[in-house]
Amino acid sequence: MKKLWIPLTYSIFLILIIVPLARILTGAWSDGWNGFANALSRPEALHALLMTGLITIVVTIINTLFGVMLSLYLVRAEWLPEKLKQLLNSVLDLPFAVSPVIGGLMIVLLLGPNTALGALLNDVGISIVYAFPGMVIATLFVTFPMMVREIMPVLQEIGTSQEEAASTLGAYSWYTFWQVTWPAIRWGVIYGVVLTVARCLGEFGAVLVVSGNIINKTQTATTLVYQDVENFNVTAANGVALVLAAVSVGLLLLMEWAKKRKEVH
């Protein structure tokens, strides 16, 4: 059987992953180095990459902070009744089940220009939908469970006894967190950060709906790829896609590294 399964596995990987990856690489180069450089040096491409970068930074920071705190509360808090904790725990996964397009739609429905809240904010000069804040919110929604899902199992596994030991030795929660809890969860957090970054870079559906995909304003790297394909400008699409794919592969390597460190500690 072994003789059958291994080649079969290899061929699936080859067809499904390796060949497509190679195809993007050659596709971006089909017009030579110049084609690739031109595709990337278009002002809209540069702007789109900048947008993606900004969103990624903002979302990763917010998601990490809240993710760490929320996991601490969901695992440790005594002020939350057990039943409520379980409920929150299942609600937590909902963004995974929601199609990104629907996630974007939700934000348009709640904060769009036609809603009371959106109009109110518009009057004060803040626009959420079709602007940067809305794109951040949409990406936050989509990436919300990632950090929490990485940290919660680690917290559960290390248990409370080390933290209790710290408290009997006179340490308060802030000191205990940094000295005792943080070293235990840090590789989980790093792993969560890598996952969040990957998802931020790749987010498409939700951002497309919320941003309106306005060139040089709210267009991100992925929505630019989409637009280029729609405009039959496949080489240009390939250029940006290659950059995204390269970053993804880099992140994948980081993930592997973080996973290994996580297991050691």
């Binding site: 080390q162 209790e164 030991a165 408290s167 009997t168 030795l169 000295q179 235990a184």
Partner: peptide
Amino acid sequence: PPQERGIGFVFQNYALFKHMSVFDNIAFG
């Protein structure tokens, strides 16, 4: 709170701080 009771507690599974050396464990308090 436990921090202010002036007690020492030895846990069943010891609850040593895993990422600290013996010296740092003892020095913690």
